[in-house]
Structures are given as structure tokens and as C-alpha cells.
Design a protein around this nucleic acid. Sequence first.
DNA 1: TCCAAATATCTAGCGCTGCTAGGAACACGA
DNA 2: TCGTGTTCCTAGCAGCGCTAGATATTTGGA
Lengths: 190, 190
Amino acid sequence: MSIQARRERERADRERLIVSVARELAEAEGWEAVTTRRLAERVEYSQPVLYSHFKGKDAIVAAVAVEGFADLAAKMRAARGSTRSPQRALAAVAAAYIAFAEEHPALYDAMFNQLVSLPFATPEAPAALHAGFDELRQVVRPIAADDDVDLLAEVLWSGLHGLVSLTRGGRLPRPDHERRLALLLSRLSG
Amino acid sequence: MSIQARRERERADRERLIVSVARELAEAEGWEAVTTRRLAERVEYSQPVLYSHFKGKDAIVAAVAVEGFADLAAKMRAARGSTRSPQRALAAVAAAYIAFAEEHPALYDAMFNQLVSLPFATPEAPAALHAGFDELRQVVRPIAADDDVDLLAEVLWSGLHGLVSLTRGGRLPRPDHERRLALLLSRLSG
DNA sequence: TCCAAATATCTAGCGCTGCTAGGAACACGA
DNA sequence: TCGTGTTCCTAGCAGCGCTAGATATTTGGA
């Protein structure tokens, strides 16, 4: 009984190891450097072991992405709690979102670009995802007026993601990043 | 003299053929189906010929993307000219942008996801790119009030791109797409 | 204690990718 | 008609995600 428990524990440990090594490798050298061979080498197991834990490489990326959503949600939560002014809270959460994307580009990539197959706007979506969206919902509630809170949260999310995505792809010049963010927020606030 | 001209003409034709075949293949089966082998087979030349025209596969994708920017700019121009009301023009251009992304997902992908290396917010950027951004600039001018027109155009672009990007990745549920767009525009209009 | 069954893991390889070196085939000017 | 220079193709490299089949390793029963 206990012996099987140990093995399951070790298996779970190894699974976590795979995910964290994948994340480290991606954050250090980008996702194009994360190959199943390199990953296997770093966790000191052979390639097929990866496939006994995950259906494929995408599933590993997805696991890293879920970690990312949890981190992002935590960052936004802290930002929202840093002030009692609704306006400041909005600005703080938005800034936290942008900062997260800038500090963890590979993670952000996994969350929004690499991945297509994560369940999102459904009940089966990972908790971290709901938590993150909840932060946006809370922070826009004071400025929603007659508009639907969920909808406004989604629009804010779109605006933030658009800014991040276009800026990072070189579509928008970096320098005015903060002015753009301020303009977006002031307009969305009504 | 004329004989060399003919050869250059044929070479240019072949280059256009490569780009249009790449585009067709991508639009029909997605970019993951666009491999150098398949592409070479469809243009009825061997693989290395591609590399005598383009530095690599990315350069071919970039050429397709530039076509995409030209098409998008044309669509937005037509939309803007369809009405004299600034409000309606804004709505029409935004709708045209969204429609383009929905009707040409592979093209949009090349323009915003596949590609990293196209020069953008610089004078060397392809004309089609400047033209597209110009449409956005024109259409937000009436609603800019005291804010910088360029900045507001960039924010609108971010919002639209965010909506498209999140919706297509399954991050936002499809059904409310139009309500989200309407909310974004009404808030940005001030 | 020893052996068979089950489990865990590895070696080797498949078909694919983007890309390129080197040689064959061609059209050209003299 | 004959070198010459260009154009183009055949063949191959190293790497990718993924998997079948063989090999260790551990387990439980006689």
C-alpha cells in the first residue's frame, strides 16, 4: 500500500519536474529551444518518459501555461488589493498585466500564442483561468455603469492583450507604451 | 538586352507564383501545411529554387503577409468611404477589420502571429502597412478630441487585434462577439 | 530463496521539417 | 561548333515529434 503511494508520489514529482524544466528552458531560451530531446536530457530521463506523463508536447506547454495563468492571477490580485480607489486599482491591475507579459514573455506566449487547445470560456477551464478573469471582472465593476460587467472585463482584456501582442511583435513602437495604456484606460473608464 | 529583360520578367513571375501558391495553400489548409516541399511541388520546381528567390520560409510568409496588409487596407478604405458619418465610419472600419480576420484567418496569422521580422513602425515598413494604419488614423480623428490621433489609432488597433486574437484562440466565447465590439467602440468614442 | 509475471525504462528508428552542397543540363557568345 | 556561365535538380544533413519493441528492474507467489 505505502509502497505504491511512494511510487505515485515520485511519479507526480517527476511530472512537476518536467513542467518546471520546460518552463525554465522556455523562459531562458524561448519555446523554439524546448524540444522533447533537450527536455528529456535535462530531466535526466529518456524521451518516451515524457509521453508517459503527457499526451504530447502541446500538453506540456499547456501545463506550463496553466502555471502562468496562476501567476498572472496572483499578480493581478495583489495589484487590486494595493489600493482602495477603483481608478487606481484599475490602473494597478492593468500595469500588473503588462508587467507580467514583459517579464515572462515565454510564459505569456504559452498562454496566448503557442496554445490552442486549452478549454477556456467553459466550466472545465482550469481554476487559475477563472481566477484571473475574476480579477478583471472585479476591477471593472466600478466603471461598468449600465454596461455588462463580464463584457467590459473581456473588452479590457482584449485591449491589454492587443497592446502586449502588437508591442511585442514590433507592430507598435515601444516608447509610447505607457501613454497608450493610459489612453486605453481613460477611454474605457468612460 | 531584351533577352535578359525577358528572363527577369519570368523570374519575377515565378516569384509572384510562389507567393500566391503559398497563400492559397495556407488559406486552404493552414500554415502548418505549407512546407517547402509541398510548395515546391505545387509551383513545379524543386525546393532549392525557393531559396533563390527568398532567404528562407519566413521570407515567403512575410511576402504573403504584405499582400494581406494591402488587402486589409483596401477593405478598410472602402468601409470608411461607405458613409459620411464619423460614427458609422468608425463602426464600418472596425467591422471590416474583424470580418477580414474572420474570412482570412491564415492571412491574419501570417500578418500577426507567424511573423516577427517585418519592419513595422518605421519608414522602411511596406507601403501597404502605412496605408492600413492611415485608415485607422483617419477614422479616429473625429473622436480624438484632445488626445493624440496616432495614439488613439494604435489603441483602437490594439482593441481590435485583442478581440480577434482572443476570440480565435477560444479565449473569449464567440456568441457575444458583436456586443463586445460595440462596447469597445462606444467606450473608445468617449 | 528462487522464479515468473508485471512494471518501468531505454534504444533505435520512422517520417517529417527547413535548408544546402555539388553536379548535371542548358542556353549563350564567339 | 565549342568553351563558358547560368540555371536547376538530385541527394543529403541535422534536427523535429513521436512510437514500437527490446531490456532492465521490481514485485509477489511457490
